[in-house]
Structures are given as C-alpha cells and as structure tokens.
C-alpha cells in the first residue's frame, strides 16, 4: 500500500508544481495584449506578433492547466443523483464510468503524439505573417494528456482500493505510517 500511496502523492505534487508554474502564463497573455494596444494606439505601430503570442500562451495555459484542475477536483459533474450514493458505491461506479476518461484522454495522447512529432520533424512554422515556430504549442497537447492520465490513474487507484477494501487508501497509508513509528 505504501508504494501506491507514495505514487499518488508524487503525482499530485508533480501536478501541483506544473499547475502553479503554468498558472503564471496568464500574466504574459495580459501584458502582450496591453502592449499591442499601447503600440497601436499611442505609437501607430501595431505588432504582427501580439495576438498570435497571446493566443499561444492562452492555449498552453488551459490545456496544461487541465491536470491541475483535475487534481483539485475542479471538474464539475452532475451530482443530483450521484451525491445520494454511499462512498463505496461511488467508487465502483467511477471505476466503470472513468473508462470514458481514459478513452478520451488516451486517444488525445495517441493521436497527438505523431502529429506533434511530425511538426517537430519538419520544424513547422505558422502560416501567419509573423510565422513563429508551431511545434512548441503542438507539443503541449501530448504533454497535457500525459499529466492528465497520471492524475486519472491516481483516482482509479483510490477508487479500486475503496471498492475492494471499503477504506480510503491515503487515510490507510497514513495509519500504516503512524503504526510503523
């Protein structure tokens, strides 16, 4: 059990780090656009890069932010019926329904990897006038999918443990750790 609990905590820590890092992308997104307004309005010299840059930053922000949101249970569900089930039943249901999560995010990883790889291989640029490199933003999708899947696996481990034993894995691990001391 200790290994599994350790894995869960490692993944959660990893996703916290990642999320808190990516969270700051919102500031350059904001500043780039303010800069564009200033250059165009005050100096009559709009940039060709501001909108595309802000768009890439925002794209990376939300796609990579997914795993952080998942780690903090920010993904909303309809709880009208769900909340009436006991914890163990919920865990059993989730073991089935979360196959949809794996189908979705798994396909996202499977299909985006060769696509991002191809972009890197040909050193793809954007078709815009500015024409920045495109592969860094394309790579955020497979990376986001990996972080998302890792976070999903921690949830499945928790559910499986609860379904089999009726106890929660993290609480159980804590108890074992205390017991060992």
């Amino acid at each position: 059990m200790n290994n599994l609990a350790g894995f869960i905590m490692t993944v959660e820590k990893l996703n916290d780090r990642m999320g808190k890092l990516v969270a700051f992308l919102v500031y350059p997104t904001m500043l780039v656009l303010v800069y564009e307004v200033m250059m165009r309005y005050a100096f009559g010299r709009p940039t060709i890069w501001a909108h595309e840059t802000s768009c890439m930053l925002y794209g990376a922000h939300f796609i990579l932010g997914g795993a952080y949101a998942l780690r903090h249970n920010a993904f909303v569900n309809v709880e009208v019926f769900y909340m009436k089930f006991p914890k163990r039943v919920k865990a059993i249901i989730d073991l089935f329904t979360w196959t949809m999560f794996y189908a979705f995010v798994g396909v996202m990883l499977w299909k985006s990897l060769p696509w991002a790889w191809e972009s890197l291989r040909v050193n793809e640029f954007s078709d815009s006038t500015w024409g920045p490199l495109l592969w860094p933003i394309k790579w955020t999708i497979p990376i986001a999918a990996v972080f998302m899947l890792l976070q999903g696996v921690t949830k499945t481990i928790k559910d499986l443990h609860l379904a089999l034993t009726g106890r929660e894995i993290i609480a159980a691990a804590d108890a074992e750790a205390t017991g060992g001391n």
Binding site: R40, G44, I48, W49, H51, E52
Partner: peptide, 15 residues
C-alpha cells in the same frame, strides 16, 4: 500584408 507594410501601412492581426 507584407505588401502594404512595405509601403508604410500597419498590418493588424486581429481575430
């Protein structure tokens, strides 16, 4: 876009 910029216009990349 490059053409108008060459003659002093300011191409704006808007959505």
């Amino acid at each position: 876009s490059d053409f108008v910029e060459h003659f002093g216009a300011a191409p704006v990349m808007l959505p």
